[in-house]
Simulated assay, not measured.
Amino acid sequence: MNVGGPTRSQGDPKIAATLVEAMEAAAHEDPDALTHGFHAWPARMHRAIARTVIARATREGERVLDPFCGSGTVLLEAMLAGRRSAGVDLNPLAGALVGVKCERRDLESRDAFEQLAELVGEASLERVQARERAIAKLPPSMIGWYGPHVLKELAGLLEEIRSVEDEADRRALEMVFSSLVVKLSKKRAETSQQEAEKRIRKGLSTEMFVRKAHELAQRWGTLDEALPEGAIAPRFFEGDSRELERLLGARTKARLILTSPPYGGTYDYHAQHALRLAWLGLDARAFARREMGARRSAAVDPDEAAEQWWDDVAAMLRGMERVLDRDGFIVLLMGDGRFGQLDVPLIPQLIEIAPHVGLELVASASQPRPAWGGGATREEHLVALKRAERRR
């Protein structure tokens, strides 16, 4: 997410003050601490927002739910605060990454992991030197993102990772690998489909992998020191936020639902993670089919995409209301939508939809954001909703 700028607020003064505090904390704190920045994830929520809202809206032991959990920022901060937590995401990569980022490892385990990464790196370099055959199991459309020697080295490295017997170590090494496959491609940036000239010598991919594994072990160390005694690891459910009750069970309720849903017509999350998903062989068909507010849909038919966006936001809020504690809160970090030339301001949209799904908007804090591609100035909002009071 972007941070900073003048903050305006409205609604319940006490709740609005918390939202303002959270947004302004994000402007002054480093987002990369503990395991938060280990793996790139576009539009990740700032950890200061998650930490501030969790501290103000929940007590120890209460449940926090993130229905668009992504790389797990909210879940990690809930764990640090001694809260129970659960995350939901359509992206299968999210579950693997959350598990690694929220894993608690003691010194012995961390040392063993670093030694294992060194062994995997040595085996990979031996492959490179011996010019061993290795086949990248990627779709033809993705092969061109890599130089031939980089492609071959990454394929061999992944084979060595897959030979690791321990499941937890293998999963962690896969996430180390995942964190590098875009950097080692010809993609200009995480969110770009443009090529950039990169000179990557033989062996560099493996060296970066080993360094990144050491970095993860060090981050685990700082996390282990920061976690409270008896901290509970989050639960993860792969699925659709519009079906929370089915995924979690009718009896599971959350005191706080804190999440950052897609910004209408802004990103293509499936495209951003396509290389990683392909390398790891993850089934992302449901993710591609059901992603909300994708920019690619707006490119086909902006009016139809905007109409679908309203339906999706309503379904999303309805799903959240069904798993919310009676006195709980929903806090959303979202930006104004844009579909082609059509702007969809978030606050009026939520005000109109909320009563139809049993909710009411109680407060918001907003900051201006760059209007990429022209059009009206857009804003990013931190919005609090609760169950609507029933009138007799």
Rank of each mutant, 00 (worst) to 15 (best):
Q10G: 15
T18Y: 12
T18I: 15
E21M: 14
M23A: 14
E24Q: 15
E24G: 09
H28G: 14
P31V: 13
F38L: 15
A43L: 08
M45Q: 13
I49D: 04
I54L: 02
R59N: 12
R63W: 15
G70K: 02
E77K: 04
A81T: 01
P92H: 02
A94C: 02
K101W: 00
E103P: 04
D106Q: 02
E108S: 06
F113K: 00
A117W: 04
E118N: 03
E126I: 08
V128I: 08
I135Y: 13
A136T: 07
P140Y: 01
M142T: 11
G147V: 08
P148K: 00
L151C: 09
K152T: 14
L154I: 01
S163A: 15
R170M: 01
R170L: 00
E174M: 10
L180K: 07
K183D: 15
L184A: 10
R188G: 09
T191E: 15
Q193D: 13
Q193L: 13
E195V: 06
R201I: 12
T206G: 07
E207C: 01
M208Q: 11
Q218E: 10
T222F: 14
E225C: 05
E225M: 09
E229Y: 09
E229Q: 11
G230I: 02
A233N: 05
E245K: 14
R246C: 11
L247Q: 05
R251V: 10
T252S: 14
K253V: 14
I257P: 02
T266K: 10
Y267P: 05
Y267G: 04
D268M: 00
D268R: 01
H270T: 06
Q272Y: 13
R276E: 07
A278G: 01
W279H: 03
R290C: 10
R296D: 05
D303P: 06
A314Y: 05
A315D: 15
V323A: 08
R326V: 10
G328Q: 02
F329I: 10
R338Q: 03
F339E: 11
G340K: 00
P348W: 00
Q349I: 00
E352S: 11
V357I: 04
S364C: 15
R369H: 08
G373P: 01
A384S: 10
L385E: 08
K386W: 00
K386C: 10
R387F: 03
R391P: 00
